[in-house]
Design a binder for these strands. Structure first.
Length: 152
DNA sequence: GCCAACGTTGGC
DNA sequence: GCCAACGTTGGC
């Protein structure tokens, strides 16, 4: 099983929103590398760190899991959506997404500040300067470290 | 709200 | 195919 981290702005969609809905399509990803991780890397049941960006504080808020295989993001065809992509067609969709399911909300957000100073987490794309990936893989060791920090 | 860093677009 | 201009991300 692989592990992942996915970023969301809590003003738009937070861990609480996912907890309420139980399951949601992770729409709006418009970055090829992030799309490829969802399309080619994710398997049903993979666990996801739910990261709050542009938040107070920014950090990891809980856990979700992959609940579907990748399929075309419907918002790319929707003219009224802010994620509409005029270059995408039903025959040749560009953007893919997966459904995610709520697993757990941490008692407290594990702040980015804490992640940054943890030597075992220094290789994460999350803390690399200039990386803006919104979907990224997490190694098994990093996963264990993050859960230990989040629950301590 | 600022702005650095990055990805994408489009003229040539 | 280059690269300047532009738009976006996301921490602060």
């Amino acid at each position: 099983m692989n592990h992942w981290l996915m970023k969301s702005e809590p003003d738009v969609f937070s861990i609480d929103d996912l907890a309420r809905k139980k399951r949601s399509a992770w729409d709006g990803v418009r970055n090829y590398q992030a799309r490829n991780f969802m399309r080619d890397g994710m398997k049903i049941g993979d666990l996801i760190l739910f990261y709050h960006s542009n938040a107070e504080p920014s950090g990891i808020a809980g856990i979700a899991k992959v609940a579907s295989a990748a399929y075309p993001d419907p918002t790319q065809f929707d003219k009224k959506s802010e994620y509409f992509d005029p270059k995408a067609t039903k025959e040749k969709p560009i953007w893919q997404l997966v459904d995610v399911e709520f697993v757990e909300k941490f008692k407290a957000v594990l702040p980015l500040e804490r992640i940054k100073v943890e030597p075992e987490l220094s290789e994460m794309p999350l803390v690399q300067k200039g990386t803006r990936l919104s979907v990224m893989p997490v190694s098994h060791a990093e996963w264990q470290t993050i859960l230990r920090l989040a629950k301590s």
